[in-house]
């Protein structure tokens, strides 16, 4: 029996409510700031209560952008981010499923060698080898394109490892039974492996969508054409683009729009998210 301390519980709730408030605070301030007219920020401090310009501000960033600073409307950037995130996610999942299938269900020369090549990618984040990777992409003529935005980020050792681990736990009898029934590799993959992996695929999907959406350095380097700007990097252009103080109400409206899609994904798929996170990293 552990004692049930009433004051201890109240203290715990207090700490947690304070903590949650602290965690939510920056976003609260951003949302509030995005509802005020530009004049508010000239008067001193950031207001803490909502203003009346929310609709105007969001309409401006969504459809007009800041043409003077050369940034396109946010709706286009949101679309670019979405395409990039989806391309990275689907790409990562498909090539990882295929290579895990090959590694687990086939025996062939140089299997270990290929496994190590894939493993190496784990050790080489883009940030570390940024200049030569940029040169490769430039030489291939992939600057300012969705292919350039997504393909170099597609290779993923983590997803391959996870699928490999998962395939190893599928009972041998599955394969024996389907071989007896005359299923070839393709049929086995499509009708047995894919349906069994669906939860793992969904969990990884959540993690990788967030990874793809939040890419920053890479799009910053390889897009010079504003039509390919993604929203997360676009914010930086807005903050440092002008020579005066940034237009805070518009910047914060953009910040809110940029953070919203991945946050919604986490909130609505919390269970899958936690599963994906704890399994990819452990």
């Amino acid at each position: 029996m552990v004692e049930n301390n009433r004051w201890g519980n109240i203290l715990a709730h207090t700490i947690l409510i304070f903590g949650v408030a602290l965690v939510v605070f920056p976003v609260y301030v951003a949302i509030i700031a995005s509802t005020h007219p530009s004049g508010t920020f000239l008067r001193g401090t950031i207001p803490l209560l909502p203003g009346g310009e929310a609709w105007e501000n969001y309409k401006t960033v969504m459809f007009e952008g800041r043409s003077r600073a050369g940034t396109p409307p946010i709706s286009l950037m949101l679309w670019n981010s979405f395409v990039m995130a989806m391309a990275i996610t689907i790409g990562k999942l498909s090539i990882s499923l295929l290579s895990a299938f090959a590694i687990v269900y086939f025996r062939f020369p140089f299997r270990l060698f290929f496994f190590w090549i894939i493993f190496l990618t784990l050790m080489l984040p883009v940030e570390v080898r940024i200049v030569p990777t940029f040169q490769v992409v430039a030489d291939l003529g992939m600057l300012n394109s969705f292919a350039g935005l997504s393909i170099p980020l597609i290779a993923s050792a983590t997803a391959t490892f996870l699928f490999r681990q998962f395939f190893m736990t599928i009972p041998e009898e599955m394969l024996e039974a389907s071989r007896v029934d005359g299923a070839g590799p393709f049929k086995f993959f499509k009708d047995i492996l894919l349906p069994l992996s669906i939860t793992n695929i969904a969990a990884l999907f959540v993690i990788m969508f967030i990874y793809g959406w939040n890419q920053y350095l890479w799009p910053l380097l390889i897009t010079t054409d504003p039509n390919y700007y993604t929203i997360v990097m676009g914010i930086q252009r807005m903050v440092t683009g002008g020579d005066s103080e940034p237009l805070w109400h518009l910047v914060m409206a953009t910040v809110v729009l940029a953070a919203l899609p991945p946050v919604l994904v986490i909130l609505f798929m919390q269970r899958l998210f936690v599963k994906g996170l704890t399994e990819t990293e452990k």
């Binding site: 953070a259 991945p262 946050v263 986490i266 998210f273 996170l277």
Partner: peptide
């Protein structure tokens, strides 16, 4: 949810 917020943001 802050996990979903990009470092830049």
């Amino acid at each position: 949810w802050p996990y979903a917020v990009a470092p830049a943001i």
